[in-house]
């Protein structure tokens, strides 16, 4: 396969970036999108040019490290019914000779570090603001000592599959990080261990989300459409319910 790429090149956070065209030859349809970029980078390195910087780690779709906007869709899922991360998107999804636009996540809270790499520490700050349980963990207790209803446990697990890749923010026309925040809130709010800090957590996490410069949610639904882990849009309603209840809770905040 021959693939024509238009890639966002930006030397560092301070410099202005632009789209640069590349032609990649000898692409196999079994390559992942990142392997195709590896191929291009080998070429660029041989030519003495700066290779394209992009984030990646496990390449198994479970770590949340990779993530680029491909042809305008976060992770490049486009119209495929299968949710995927960039590393699990294969070149067979594209036609031979296709021209593909590749851009980094674009969000005020995710400044570009270089080329396709963005700084996602804003997500870490949201977690630090309350996405945890304050207990002395000690050794693992007997699992049956804290009963959790099956339906709620399932919902918590579903929400906990969020890998924090940031596709929701990248896809949101408002640049909002609500799906990420809502997944973390729902994950902890559904479990017995999350109850003591449930309502203070939602306040501090949403406050940190807003302080980091993410936009507000207007229920458009683009986030859930690109989420590789299929975090449902209804987690945002769950967050809103907790946030409203928190206004009537005395929790020292």
């Amino acid at each position: 396969m021959i693939i024509n790429l238009r890639v966002w090149r930006q030397a560092n956070a301070q410099s202005a970036g632009k789209m640069v065209s590349y032609r990649v030859e000898g692409v196999s349809e079994d390559m992942s999108f990142l392997e195709m970029l590896d191929l291009l980078n080998e070429d660029l390195t041989v030519k003495g040019e700066e290779p394209i910087a992009f984030d990646h780690d496990c390449r198994e779709g479970i770590c949340g490290m990779c993530g680029i906007v491909i042809n305008g869709a976060a992770h490049g899922r486009a119209n495929s019914p299968v949710p995927t991360t960039t590393c699990q998107l294969h070149m067979r999804s594209f036609a031979d000779g296709a021209t593909i636009d590749v851009e980094p996540w674009r969000a005020g809270a995710f400044p570009v570090i270089k080329d396709l790499v963005v700084d996602r520490t804003a997500f870490d700050r949201i977690i630090q603001a309350g996405g945890f349980i304050s207990i002395n963990a000690g050794s693992a207790p007997e699992a049956h000592s804290v009963p959790a209803p099956k339906i709620q446990a399932d919902r918590a697990f579903d929400a906990a599959t969020c890998i924090g890749c940031g596709a929701c923010v990248a896809a949101c026309p408002n640049g909002s990080g609500m799906l990420f925040t809502a997944a973390k809130i729902t994950h902890l709010a559904m479990l017995p261990q999350g109850q003591p800090e449930r309502y203070s957590r939602v306040k501090t996490m949403v406050a940190q989300h807003d302080a980091d410069g993410f936009g507000g949610c207007t229920n458009i639904g683009e986030c859930a459409a690109v989420c590789p882990k299929q975090i449902p849009l209804d987690t945002i309603s769950a967050l809103n319910r907790d946030l409203m209840k928190s206004l009537f809770k005395k929790d020292g905040k």
Binding site: W8, G72, R106, N174
Partner: peptide
């Protein structure tokens, strides 16, 4: 807030 959160626009946008 939305404009501040997306000050640099995408070159290509796909609506899903």
């Amino acid at each position: 807030r939305a404009h501040a959160a997306r000050s640099t626009k995408y070159v290509t946008t796909k609506r899903l």
